[in-house]
Design a protein around this nucleic acid. Structure first.
Length: 715
DNA sequence: CCACCTGCTGTTTTT
DNA sequence: CAGCAGGTGG
């Protein structure tokens, strides 16, 4: 492949590629050739004679980094060797491992995944004897959420609570104690969570000047992708690495910021020019991905935003076909209709070029069943990850113990397979081992004969050369009976997973590296898109990707936007950007599905739905509406808003629904539903208007109340 | 102290 | 439908 900067790039892209010195901020709209720009810049730098090892490319997923490096290699005609590319987290992991002793980890450390972190939270909670008998006590997942959110946003737990979890206020003191206990536990057992990777790197770079200088000297050219989704500590890391020279190119799009929930701060991209003096700002606005009718629709989604974006994408790609909005009767029939659409699209496109997107992982379950029934293969992104499966974690626990004897989480997993040994016994054994209490060890091993064997086996592992594949081989051999015993129903399937793990291990010489990569990057086998498998993905996991045809399902209130995001206006804004990301993935064909009812587990019945506000506010001209007929087909549905909708004397939330389609009878157009305040209950969300001037309002902490309009102030 | 059973609660997104 | 607390029997 050739590299012709003159003909293959537009003016803005070319400028971004050719500006190699000094800070550059590239505001890259969706589909504006951002990846191409980064790839060409990589190639250009190397062609200029820059040593590839002096380039650092930080991206959001390791997959993205790998793909960019590969493409740059293709352009150059030889692979880029020595370039560091990956996520902030993987870069941090590698750097910390080389400097573990400096951070007080003399025996190395182990990276915990999400479920490890949750169980630590639970253990700490139990050991502080908090929440006994309280059924509504925050779950371990909630506890961890609050702790990491507080860290990522660098705010006290109290502020996080005030802003987004008012109902947890009674537990504030508990949460602070649990957070402290959690931190102490990690230290004590040489464990590190995802957040620690970033904070420890920041600490290291701040404190260790020689190291900082060394890294600054090495990485003379830094590129950071998806800058809108970095948080405060990531921005500091970039500043440390860039140093005075400030040779940083940040690329991102404020309209695609969808990770505020984990502490991402859009201010980073907006303030980049302030933090790096003399920043050259380049905007990429021409879209090369989507046909114009799709962009007309996505531009409208952005127009509804409270804080307007200075952005309007345009494209040369024409099409006569408008995006479609399809109204199935229920989420069950939606699955069937989507399968029909997939089969039809499969005639025009390769199936791996067709994607179904949704807000949350579980929303694809009915579709997965339907696809399996008709025999269509699919590949799902954003579900349970490879390394989170119980049997994989079991096996990895033994590997972890080879590296880090303080890893209590791993001890628990490993020893609890012995019949008669539970959490309490493990804790005692752990303590006895670390205090050389031979007497207890003798007693306990006499009581459980198979424990003795297991400990001998572990010693054997520790004494062999730490070659991952060899150690794993031995672990798998003695894990085999446990596997069959523990999973009598489906152990053959899990066995296949373990063999896959063996395959992966072949590629590693270093145990730490293997463990880190598994936790930081999930299933390395997922890299390649399967041929002839339709893609199912959460919108978050679809970021940065594109398909010829995209179907978005479950576009109803409480699902997309998610129910949890309906409490606060700023969360709703993030959902809007998420909707924008979803729709801008489509190149030629976009279909939005709005089921009229969804199955409700609690009642066992189908509940009627309200269409997502993001669909309601679209003007009639940008899409073709189709509804499911009672016979199961699709027919054109004419916009019914010819008869004027009776409007309440205007709660002023008009941004939504200016030209909305008429809602189903008996419901109220969400255009009128917004937020309000009440003298006693405070701020709440209006969820229905059963009769004129009477509203059902959900007040956080008080629940749903029906209130006369006169007592409410509309926001 | 551990394993197993019962009945209640409440469902986002990810490195 | 899972995840979890609490009770019971070994």
């Amino acid at each position: 492949m050739s590299m012709d900067i003159e003909t293959e790039l537009n003016d803005a892209q070319r400028e971004a590629v050719l500006t190699t010195e000094g800070p550059v901020l590239v505001i890259a709209g969706a589909g504006s050739g951002k990846t191409r720009t980064i790839v060409y810049r990589l190639a250009h730098l190397v062609r200029q004679g820059i040593d590839p090892a002096q380039i650092l490319l930080l991206t959001f997923t390791r997959k993205a980094a790998q793909e960019m490096l590969n493409r740059a290699g293709t352009i150059l005609g030889h692979p880029l060797t020595g370039t560091s590319g990956g996520t902030f987290h993987s870069f941090a992991y590698a750097t910390l491992r080389r400097n573990a002793a400096d951070l007080g980890f003399d025996n190395g450390f182990t990276l915990m995944d999400r479920s490890d972190c949750e169980s630590v939270c639970k253990d700490v909670k139990d050991s502080l004897t908090l929440g006994k008998g309280d059924r509504s006590y925050p779950k371990k997942a909630t506890l961890l959420d609050m702790i990491t959110k507080s860290r990522n946003k660098e705010l006290p737990i109290e502020s996080i609570m005030e802003r987004e979890a008012y109902h947890l206020t009674p537990y504030l003191d508990d949460l602070n104690s649990i957070a402290a206990g959690y931190a102490a536990f990690k230290r004590q057992h040489a464990l590190v969570d995802y957040d620690d990777l970033l904070f420890l790197l920041d600490e290291l770079l701040t404190r260790n000047e020689p190291l900082r200088n060394q890294l600054q000297a090495r990485y003379r050219y830094i590129m950071v992708d998806e800058y809108q989704d970095t948080n405060l500590v990531q921005a500091r890391i970039v500043q440390h690495l860039a140093g005075k020279r400030g040779n940083v190119m940040a690329v991102g799009d404020d309209a695609q910021s969808i990770y505020a929930f984990r502490g991402a701060n859009v201010a980073n991209i907006l303030d980049f020019p302030k933090n790096f003096e003399g920043t050259k700002i380049i905007r990429l606005e021409k879209n090369y991905r989507s046909v114009q009718p799709i962009l007309d629709l996505t531009n409208e989604i952005l127009q509804g935003a409270t804080i307007r974006f200075d952005k309007h994408l345009y494209s040369d790609l024409k099409s006569d076909a408008l995006p479609e909005v399809v109204y199935p009767l229920s989420d069950q029939t939606q699955a069937r209709l989507v399968v029909d659409q997939i089969l039809e699209l499969g005639r025009k496109y390769s199936l791996h070029d067709v994607a179904v997107l949704f807000r949350a992982g579980y929303q694809s379950f009915p579709l997965e069943v339907a696809l399996t029934r008709v025999g269509v293969d699919y590949q799902k992104f954003g579900g349970i990850r490879f390394h989170e499966a119980a049997h994989i974690k079991d096996v990895l626990a033994y590997l972890r113990l080879v590296v880090n004897p303080h890893d209590l989480m791993a001890w628990q997993r490993a020893l609890e397979h012995v019949k008669g040994v539970g959490p309490k016994t493990v804790a005692k054994i752990y303590k006895a081992m670390h205090t050389n209490d031979a007497k207890y060890m003798a007693t306990v091993t006499r009581k459980h004969e198979s424990l003795r064997e297991l400990l001998n086996e572990l010693d054997g592992l520790r004494n062999m050369p730490p070659k991952p594949s060899a150690v794993l081989e031995r672990v798998l051999a003695f894990y085999q009976p446990v596997l069959i015993d523990k999973y009598p129903d489906d152990y053959p399937k899990r066995q296949a997973g373990l063999e896959q793990l063996s395959q992966i291990a072949q590629n590693y010489v270093d145990m730490d590296q293997l463990l880190g990569d598994l936790s930081l990057d999930g299933d390395p086998d997922e890299e390649k898109r399967k041929e002839n498998a339709v893609v199912l993905s959460t919108v978050h996991s679809a970021k940065g990707l594109e398909w010829s045809a995209v179907i978005v399902i479950d576009l109803v209130e409480d699902r997309f936007p998610s129910r949890k995001a309906m409490q606060r206006p700023e969360d709703l804004e993030e959902e809007r950007r998420l909707m924008y990301v979803a729709c801008t993935r489509a190149k030629q064909c976009l279909k939005l599905f709005v089921p009229s009812s969804v199955y409700n587990r609690q009642s066992g019945l189908s509940d009627p739905t309200l269409p997502s506000p993001f669909v309601l506010e679209l003007s009639g001209g940008v899409f073709t509406p189709l509804k499911e007929s009672y016979s199961g087909g699709l027919e054109k549905r004419w916009p019914v808003d010819t008869k004027p909708v009776h409007r309440e004397p205007a709660p002023s939330r008009t941004a939504a629904g200016a030209s909305a389609d008429s809602p189903a009878p008996g419901t109220v157009p969400p255009a009128q539903l917004g937020f309000c305040t009440h003298k006693i209950f405070g701020k709440g969300k209006i969820i229905a208007c059963p009769e004129p001037n009477k509203y059902k309002v959900n007040f956080p902490g008080f629940g749903i109340k029906t209130i006369i309009g006169d007592y409410l102030e509309m926001l």
